[in-house]
Simulated scan of single mutants.
Amino acid sequence: MVWAALSPMQAQAQPILTARCTVDSLSTNAEAAARVEWARKCGTIQNVGDPTAFFDTGTSSASGGTLKDYLESDPERNPEGEGAFTGPDYLFKVNASTVLALYLSGPTYQAVDADGYFKWSRDSWRRKGRQLYPTFSTSSDITAQDNIQLFPHRTLADCMLYFDKESTQPAFTAFHVNGYCEAACYTPEQKILFSSGEVPILEAVRSLREDLITLTPDSTLDNLRLQRNSTYSYTRELRDAEQKLCIITTQSGGKLSVTLEHPVINGEGRIVQAQTLEVGDALVKADGTLDPIVDIQRTTYFGKVYNIAPVSTDLVSNILVAQGYLVGSVRFQNDEARYLNRILLYQSVPDDVLP
């Protein structure tokens, strides 16, 4: 089953499915930012048409005055956003979609672009570790059999969409934003710990399980405690694609299969990418014991991969349990990527050395 991408504005009380599409993959944040800026520019020029056709959000701008935004589509007349470059995830708000895709929360600045339209930005240090970008197809229903993937021009030279990445086949057809792409990690059979026990990630996605288990904020490497958390989002791909995986085997016979960039806790309490682990390093079990790695294989897998994030945003509560081992949520690949390679779980301070 394929899931549509929902945003917090559309579904605040249930887990959110966020799209990632390897078929339309962009390898750098610079490429993602360029796609978002292209969508903002095309949305204003093609669908707004007049720089004065803004609405005042009433929110203060860090540059002075109030923030002005543009509606690219009428949600009542065109709820599926046919022909819109920003899509329904952000309610067709051109500037809001830009900052939400590229930045963490923070002061929002406002300027005027070369075409006279208001344009928003935030401080560079508030950029997301992995930025989001829109992906397009011929239908608003990503499950439709006749839904065809579309691509912007490879150099973003125009506001056309194409049937091929080489931009040789213009798509003179209706188009829709199917979601915003980001990274994902688990193969479908990998088991994540929920309150009732381990559940394969694909089964959790299908049932929208909300009872995710994570570490408590005060957990340490020698005093791990689990808590019932809530699921904030699931990430999955729109289409099957070839994935590069690390298959990690431990001394106890455990096995963890994740993408190369997946965040994992090593024996030092440090969060690292799976691809940096070596034989002799250790994974950390949910009970705190270390399990030495005896084999690491790199392989490819054709299909979809998945990930998950809890509601809590503190770093330690974004450590969950997969296949019995401590791993990081998708936030460590996106908003909190700057914490990779840092120690998150320290040793407890003995009582006898406390003042």
Rank of each mutant, 00 (worst) to 15 (best):
309 A>T: 10
140 S>E: 09
267 G>M: 07
96 A>H: 12
215 L>W: 14
314 D>S: 12
47 N>L: 10
322 A>W: 03
310 P>C: 00
224 L>H: 01
75 P>E: 09
146 D>L: 05
237 E>Y: 00
332 F>H: 04
9 M>F: 14
84 A>N: 11
125 W>Y: 14
214 T>P: 14
200 P>W: 06
45 I>K: 13
53 A>C: 08
120 W>F: 15
45 I>R: 14
170 P>I: 02
285 K>Y: 05
276 T>R: 06
102 L>V: 08
176 H>L: 06
326 L>P: 08
296 I>Y: 06
156 L>Y: 09
107 P>K: 05
32 A>F: 02
81 G>M: 03
67 L>I: 02
179 G>W: 05
217 P>Y: 04
21 C>S: 13
114 A>K: 12
127 R>I: 12
209 R>I: 10
333 Q>V: 09
68 K>C: 04
89 D>S: 13
77 R>H: 11
17 L>R: 06
131 Q>R: 06
326 L>C: 07
107 P>A: 05
216 T>N: 05
355 P>T: 05
145 Q>L: 14
82 E>P: 00
1 M>I: 09
11 A>T: 14
274 A>Y: 04
147 N>C: 11
278 E>M: 12
167 S>R: 06
324 G>V: 00
138 T>P: 13
238 L>M: 08
299 T>M: 09
85 F>T: 04
59 T>E: 09
329 S>H: 00
41 K>F: 00
128 K>L: 15
352 D>P: 01
251 Q>L: 14
351 D>M: 06
57 T>P: 03
311 V>K: 10
182 E>C: 09
291 D>F: 02
72 E>V: 09
191 K>D: 10
88 P>V: 12
240 D>I: 01
338 R>E: 02
110 Q>Y: 12
300 T>E: 08
273 Q>L: 07
257 S>C: 10
241 A>P: 10
334 N>W: 05
324 G>L: 00
195 S>T: 10
266 N>A: 07
178 N>Y: 01
11 A>D: 15
342 R>G: 12
200 P>S: 07
295 D>F: 06
221 L>G: 13
323 Q>N: 10
179 G>T: 06
5 A>R: 05
184 A>W: 02
242 E>M: 12
338 R>P: 00
194 F>Y: 13
154 R>I: 11
157 A>M: 03
292 P>I: 05
298 R>W: 13
240 D>T: 04
152 P>S: 08
270 R>P: 08
108 T>A: 11
58 G>P: 03
